[in-house]
């Protein structure tokens, strides 16, 4: 995001390993067990349930087991990128850093499930505002849409379910529900806009504190149920760190500012194609 070159000594004040953590939302009631400790060999792959984003060379991990974002310092980011990315490429190899990340549960000694490819923003630079803008999405294209009672009741049900599941299982809950078993509709933006309007109407009357991911998760599930091939995206930026979950349909942001699609690194994407990043 144009933050200038980071030197290794910039904030590496406490040694080469630098982790700063931030919870995604309220701590989930259930936490999966920690991954098996590695066998002593140098870890060489990402641990299961850990998603990565690369923002200007700095890595951010989303650890679904602990439901936390973990920011790596510049040096640790370089070590991980060199180890997981292209092992033949030059870069620092630091056994202590890798071992510490394995102890944190971010790396494992097991074989990699596939090529390591951290998410990157399409348009580095970050968001222009940290405030969510629900009306700036597709809802603005259908100001007169009046969702019917069945749609409102369904939206309410999805919101309640997502809130409950997120509080219980954290973001992992989002992965358990697979999208679009019914035949997918075409890119039906008017239908999507009506759905968004329904969810905004329900949220307008819902006084319970919400998990920050509950609203987009509920919208995504609802869309999947009616056959829309939407994707639920958890995006992140660094400096300052900012994360937002939003729903998109073929690149169109449905429930927030359109700029999110390009400004954030999509660290977790759940959609018809499954889980990504």
């Amino acid at each position: 995001m144009g933050s200038g070159p980071l030197r290794q000594d910039d904030l590496e004040l406490d040694g080469p390993l630098l982790l700063v953590e931030c919870p995604v939302g309220p701590a989930p009631a259930r936490t999966p067990s920690a991954p098996d400790p590695h066998d002593g060999s140098l870890p060489a792959s990402s641990a299961p349930g850990v998603h990565w984003a690369d923002y200007d060379g700095d890595l951010i991990a989303l650890d679904l087991r602990t439901d936390r974002f973990v920011a790596l310092g510049a040096y640790a980011s370089a070590v991980v990128s060199a180890t997981l990315g292209t092992p033949a490429a030059p870069g620092p190899r630091d056994g202590e850093v890798l071992a510490a990340l394995a102890r944190r549960g971010l790396l494992t000694g097991g074989p990699a499930a596939g090529p390591w490819s951290p998410a990157r923003p399409a348009r580095p630079g970050g968001v222009t505002t940290n405030a969510p803008r629900p009306l700036a999405g597709v809802a603005r294209t259908a100001p007169a849409a009046r969702p019917g009672l069945p749609l409102l009741l369904a939206a309410r049900s999805h919101l309640l379910t997502c809130e409950r599941e997120l509080r219980r299982d954290g973001l992992s809950a989002l992965l358990a529900d697979r999208p679009a078993e019914r035949p997918a509709r075409p890119d039906d933006l008017p239908v999507a806009a009506r759905l968004v309007r329904a969810h905004l109407a329900v949220r307008r009357l819902w006084s319970r504190p919400q998990h920050p991911m509950a609203a987009p998760a509920a919208l995504a599930r609802h869309a999947w149920r009616v056959g829309l091939p939407v994707r639920l995206v958890v995006g992140v930026q660094k400096h300052p760190l900012h994360s937002r979950a939003f729903v998109e349909l073929r690149g169109t942001v449905l429930d927030d500012d359109p700029e999110l699609a390009g400004a954030l690194a999509p660290i977790l994407v759940v959609g018809p194609e499954g889980e990504a990043a």
Partner: peptide, 15 residues
């Protein structure tokens, strides 16, 4: 305070 400095500079501060 130093730890706060590191966390603030590294990210993860909402404002």
């Amino acid at each position: 305070a130093l730890a706060d400095l590191v966390a603030t500079g590294r990210g993860f501060v909402r404002g």
